[in-house]
């Protein structure tokens, strides 16, 4: 194995984990990661070492994931959203006058959190536990950094539906990080 191949072998699992987080489909995720690794192996000279191989491979993976979503977003079977229970969960955060039941408090040392690998693991777990449809829309917007209209177009959903899903995703993630990271670090 060449040094590049060894490095790619070490990257395989982390890349696959993120591909699965985005696509929520094992086979499609494996395809996207294989396409990524192949692209690098076919043109090893294109990687000039200006960034880490990880960063380079992640950039390619993001493009492959967008391709994959374009090709088969409507084919991948993803569990339907339980809209009612999501709405109820959101509603329960507010009282009848629309104010917070439990007022969100400031997170302690948020800048430090951004730098911590362990924080990223908590974030990944929160994403894993989020309903698949929400996570897919949210990650397209925030991780693949697609414009909202591109997310809507590529997934075939209305702009309003897209905004509602992004809102729900942010509220769920906010609560998940609040519970699993920020309250733990202050207790």
């Amino acid at each position: 194995m060449s040094p590049l191949e060894r490095e790619l072998a070490a990257l395989h699992k982390p890349l696959l984990r993120y591909a699965k987080l985005q696509l929520r489909d094992q086979a499609a995720a494996e395809d996207a990661v294989s396409a990524t690794l192949l692209a690098i192996l076919e043109r090893p000279d294109a990687f000039r070492g200006g960034s880490s191989l990880r960063t380079y491979a992640t950039g390619i993976l993001k493009h492959k994931l967008v391709d994959q979503i374009r090709r088969c977003s409507r084919e991948v079977a993803i569990e339907p959203l339980d809209e009612q229970s999501l709405d109820e969960a959101l509603d329960s955060l507010f009282n009848e006058t629309g104010h917070w039941c439990e007022r969100p408090v400031a997170w302690v040392e948020p800048e430090r959190a951004v730098e911590q690998a362990q924080m990223m693991k908590v974030l990944e777990r929160c994403l894993e536990n989020m309903p698949a449809r929400l996570a897919r829309v949210f990650m397209m917007r925030e991780w693949l950094e697609k414009e909202t209209h591109e997310v809507c177009d590529e997934l075939g959903i209305t702009a309003n539906n897209c905004h509602v899903m992004l809102f729900r995703a942010r509220m769920l993630l906010r609560a998940c990080l609040d519970t699993n990271w920020f309250q733990r670090t202050t207790s």
């Binding site: 990880r54 992640t58 959190a113 951004v114 990223m120 974030l123 925030e142 991780w143």
Partner: peptide, 15 residues
């Protein structure tokens, strides 16, 4: 917190 979420997601990735 929403802003921080955005920054965390931009930074997220295989590591």
């Amino acid at each position: 917190q929403f802003d921080l979420l955005r920054r965390l997601m931009r930074k997220a990735g295989p590591a």
